[in-house]
Amino acid sequence: MTRPASESPHRSGAPENPRRSGLARLAGALNELTIVVGLVAISLYLAVTTPSFLTTANLLSILLASALIGIVAVGETFVIVTGGIDLSVGSVVAFSGVMAGLAMQAHLPVPVAILIGLGIGALSGGFIAFAVTVLEMSPFIVSLAVLAMARGLAFIVTNGNTVFSFPDSFDNIGGGNLGAFPVAALIAAAVFLIAGLVLAKTVFGAEIYAVGGNREAARLAGIPVGRTLALVYVISGALAGLGGIVLAGRLDSAQPIAAVGLELNAIAAVVIGGASLFGGKGSILGTLMGVLIIGLINNGLTLKNVQPFWVQFIQGAVIFGAVLIDSLNQKRRRS
């Protein structure tokens, strides 16, 4: 018969305080439907104002450009739903790419080179997983360290040089077409489909949500929290490795400086897609829409000849807006 104060049973069900800011109410209204509306609105705007937008070539180029962000954003979605974050993905893309490239320069067969690229990504993720689960370090700091380490290693192994001229069979992965569609976009589509099913339909997916929703409750309920956390970072790393292969193939070269800042695009896509940086919330479908919105914005900025410096600023502002909405939603739920 103690502590009634902390047990007011209807805290969250309380009607909204009339003085609550309009901003918070607006944020509450932003859900999956509004993402779709945003997507359609941006498309309509670009279609009406830019004649070159609605051409097959341009639309396919959006898909191609979105493929890389998309593949990486899928892994980031897994991580963010557990309440973690992986800042290392951009650097891991570069490191995996150059390692795959070096393997082919050493005349290793293309499948082996691909496995090396994926393996490097998975290893990087495994390193973060070890630090987060066994050493109980903060994923933010660990992945920030790996961001710098992987980038450094990419420069070290290449001596700062670009690795180039790969077999056609490798370049097709990133740059080729299958029928009308870019192979890279088809790979991304497959990744989205599989990941969507895993997150929504499997025990592993349910465990990811539970760990992100309340880690302690999940642990006491018998969910293997450490294993779940470790797996999401390995998956994120491996998908960054896949991203490195796709990018290297598209450019027919692997640069140690590639994909700088890609993590921001990926995180932005995940958050725009409705995931919460506080964990427990998010979906692959949402991330897909987030990726397309980022792709459309980037494409629109190019078509409208916006200065490249502004592009960065605008991308940052979009991320800020997405995180602001998440934060306001969180506040609304708590009060």
Binding site: S12, A206, Y209, A210, G213, N214, E216, A217, A218, L220, G280, K281, R333
Partner: peptide, 12 residues
């Protein structure tokens, strides 16, 4: 804090 995942439905 330890028993429930509050943002989840009853069934989960």
């Amino acid at each position: 804090a330890e028993g429930l995942v509050l943002p989840f439905p009853v069934r989960s």
